[in-house]
Amino acid sequence: MNEATAAQADSPMIEIAGLNKWYGDFHVLRDIDLTVARGERIVICGPSGSGKSTLIRCINHLEEHQEGRIVVNGVPMTRDVKRIEQIRRNVGMVFQHFNLFPHLSVLDNCCISQTWVQKKPRAEAERTAREILERVQIADQALKYPGQLSGGQQQRVAIARALCMQPEVMLFDEPTSALDPEMIKEVLDVMVELARDGMTMLCVTHEMGFAKTVADRVIFMDQGQIIEQAPPETFFNHPKSERTQLFLSQILGH
């Protein structure tokens, strides 16, 4: 952890307390408590349907929760639209299926939030966008359209698009699940790079190698609740709960 973030480490980046959410009558998130420190890298794993995606989607209010408190960067979440937009400005998100805007060029995808949210002049927005595209090593594709890129390239553009807002936190919702095996590495490399730079990250992923190298903490979820959380060492070598053991044996078994 670098010094700048360590200095603020006492005020947490994200605070979640007593979070409960239902889809109709289905109880998807049950009494979630989670505090994320500044600069902390968290990997969330668990079987499908365990609520891990729903949890991170609650953090930028893509999903509405019914009970509990979420505070992001000191701003408590309410149903007020302005407040929600304020929180989203600090939270970047990367989706499983990229969700790039197909009718806009790569550059325009990266500029849209700078133009309409940060109200930056076009030249400045483009400069930022090109810098960040350079960071994800895709600057040469800036004028192409998403449909012309490979899956791995699209996902890197999606990361760049989120970074263009200069967020404090990045949420990753299974960023490599929709990719062909040979493209996973190029995306993970970008994510590792981002982690090295001290970005606060919450990643829902099954890439256990990634968890081992960058995570400060691994969280295991099942049936809508956090079953176990520990630093990767402990988590992988001495899992406490039987469910975690079962899950790890399934995912690492082959």
């Binding site: 009558d25 109880h27 400060d216 609740q225 959380q229």
Partner: peptide, 22 residues
């Protein structure tokens, strides 16, 4: 940073708050 892992008790499934039913 984070203390050792603890195994949590399973939380029982609950009905959603009354507001949305009936």
């Amino acid at each position: 940073m984070v203390d050792t892992s603890t195994e949590t008790e399973m939380v029982a499934e609950r009905r959603p708050p009354d507001l949305r039913r009936g």
